[in-house]
Design a binder for these strands. Structure first.
Length: 560
DNA sequence: GCCGTTTTCGGCCCGACTGTTTTCAGTCG
């Protein structure tokens, strides 16, 4: 992930943070943050294309970015780095501690890290300081502990099941999750739940067994920390403001700022209670009404990231996003012949029950020695698949395999064997820390294998456990586009791989995608909904996703 | 800092909650 854009955006984000910490103008801070985000999401490489073409980048930021591309930093950033110790930046990561307090602590008391702050509080050195009462100090101390222990984001699978648990535990007229979960981000920091319900729902909520700690308790909002460490906010909203509240709490913050500015320009005001002209309600009951009143298309939640969706919606040019119901099959699944836990018969029956038009069985191949796979076993399975096909005249079974991409880019079997499979997924399962150049060559070699149809879980990350491998993704995607090799969107929530930003980049290079479950058990088949979320965040349509295509078109793509 | 069929200057989103304040600042989303 070391595109020039990402490095430049990271430097600009750091500058925004330091600028805020040194008491810089808040509007300028926002300009820097906005520009950084736009640069990171810009499909063209700014070391080649003119950075002035990025929305939100004017003359001043362009100059900083040009200097950064020249020498890996810029003068103003160097200045601020010299003035603000690294630990002071970490101070603002303590919950409830913002830039104002961080500056004050550093300048007046020389506190330059969360650890130093903890020490100052316990030693009583901050007792009686204006603005820092005993409760504030106790909260900060607790925040420092949390920062050290958890405070980490969880992947969407964990967050989704917690949200569903919370919603079923409460009685409400209407209840739904909003926030980054509704936007289908791959990692979630906390969960926002909205409800239309009597105020008694708050006491009911606070008494639930999953509540470990009550962070805030009001009439309209209660925040708790669950036993798993994740924060959940429950907000009670009036029924007539449901749409406005969902719109507001779904975010993203940047998307909301953009559409609020539009409301202001029309002389209106948009809040979580509705869209108003003075006292008059223009729209509030549904999100659809609000977007319509603002003269724009309804923006699906996964697109609400201020990444060009507002302009596109105003022009009526939002793409029709791929939906879960568009998927006609799954092209990456396992059985108990290798590391799956369900039999071929049961997996296929479960796929058929989901209404698929086609279903691929792709067990591992011999190079993953621990799977004890052999060519004989694979051929025997092929016969079983052919026999099973008789039972399912309305669903085409594909016999495939998940190959292992060796460090040199080769795979388990030679071409004369590979071509007998209906579909070949190829994935990296080991040697994760090769150099960027070697890893890039490895992926390109796999793409150039004429029998490799799909690169499985390309970055091989495991959220919270293993980082992405390092590769020149632009070069890999160019090779995939050129060779007609699809990139997988592995829907397993701890993988979520490719991530949405890389999907966008790959699409820019003409790459097609396969949204697969990588199921090792029957319940995993439903994970495709997370993969669809990634695809939607990357603005994919059915045209981009090969397993939404009719069987004949898919078979033509696979070229067998 | 950026931005503009109301602007090249003067704007730039808004409300809830907490802890501390005797009317409000800071933080968060």
């Amino acid at each position: 992930m070391a595109r020039a854009n990402d490095d430049a955006a990271a430097a600009l984000t750091e500058y925004a943070e330091l600028f805020a910490l040194t008491g810089g103008d808040a509007f300028r801070v926002r300009s820097y943050q906005k520009a950084a985000k736009a640069i990171a999401g810009f499909p063209e490489d700014i070391s080649v294309a003119d950075v002035r073409g990025v929305p939100g980048v004017g003359e001043a930021i362009a100059k900083k970015m040009e200097e950064f591309l020249q020498r890996g930093s810029f003068r103003q950033l160097d200045d601020l780095r010299g003035r603000v110790p690294e630990g002071v930046r970490r101070l603002t990561r303590v919950p409830t501690l913002g830039p104002k307090t961080a500056i004050m602590l550093f300048e007046d008391y020389g506190i330059d890290s969360p650890a130093a702050l903890g020490e100052a509080i316990t030693s009583g050195r901050l007792d009686g300081v204006k603005g820092l009462g005993p409760k504030t100090l106790a909260n900060l101390l607790k925040g420092i502990e949390q920062l050290e222990q958890s405070g980490r984001r969880v992947h969407i699978g964990v967050a989704m099941s917690l949200a569903e648990q919370v919603m079923t535990s409460l009685k409400a007229e209407r209840i739904a999750y909003a926030g980054s979960l509704r936007r289908m981000k791959d990692t979630i920091g906390d969960i926002d739940i909205l409800a239309v319900a009597p105020e008694s729902i708050m006491t009911e909520f606070r008494a639930q067994p999953y509540v470990a700690e009550i962070i805030a308790a009001g009439d309209k909002k209660t925040s708790i920390r669950t036993t798993s460490g994740l924060q959940v906010d429950l907000r009670v909203v009036p029924a007539e403001s449901w749409g406005a509240a969902m719109q507001y709490f779904t975010g993203s913050k940047e998307h909301n700022v953009a559409i609020r500015e539009m409301a202001v320009k029309k002389g209106w005001k948009l809040s979580e209670y509705g869209l108003f002209e003075g006292e008059r309600v223009i729209a509030s009951e549904s999100e659809e009404d609000i977007y319509a009143a603002l003269g724009m298309q309804f923006v699906p939640p996964p697109m609400r990231e201020d990444g060009g969706e507002v302009k596109a919606a105003l022009r009526g040019e939002l793409p029709t996003l791929v939906q879960l119901a568009d998927l006609k099959g799954d092209l990456h699944t396992h059985t108990n012949l290798t590391d799956g836990i369900a039999s071929l018969e049961d997996m296929v029956a479960a796929g058929h029950a989901r209404g698929y038009v086609y279903y691929a069985v792709t067990d591992h191949a011999p190079d993953l020695a621990m799977q004890r796979m052999t060519l004989d076993k694979a051929l025997e399975q092929r016969q079983q698949v052919a026999d099973l096909q008789q039972k399912y005249p309305d669903m085409r079974l594909l016999h495939g395999t998940e190959l292992n991409i060796a460090p040199d880019g080769s795979v388990d079997w030679p071409g004369e064997i590979l071509r007998e499979f209906d579909v070949c997924v190829a994935s990296v399962h080991s040697h994760f820390s090769m150099s960027r150049d070697e890893m890039t060559r490895r992926f390109i070699a796999a793409c150039e294998n004429p029998y490799v149809d799909i690169i499985g879980h390309p970055t091989t990350r495991k959220i919270g456990k293993r980082p992405q491998v390092d590769a020149d993704w632009e070069a890999v995607f160019r090779a995939a586009g050129r060779t007609g090799t699809a990139m997988e969107i592995d829907s397993f929530p701890d993988r979520s791989d490719l991530p949405a930003d890389l999907v966008r980049l790959a699409k820019h290079h003409g790459v097609k995608f396969s949204i697969d479950s990588d199921s090792h058990a029957i319940p995993h088949l439903t994970n495709q909904r997370f993969g669809v979320g990634i695809a939607q965040r990357a603005w994919l349509t059915t045209e981009d996703v090969i397993n939404t295509w009719p069987l004949e078109r898919l078979l033509a793509f696979l070229g067998r």
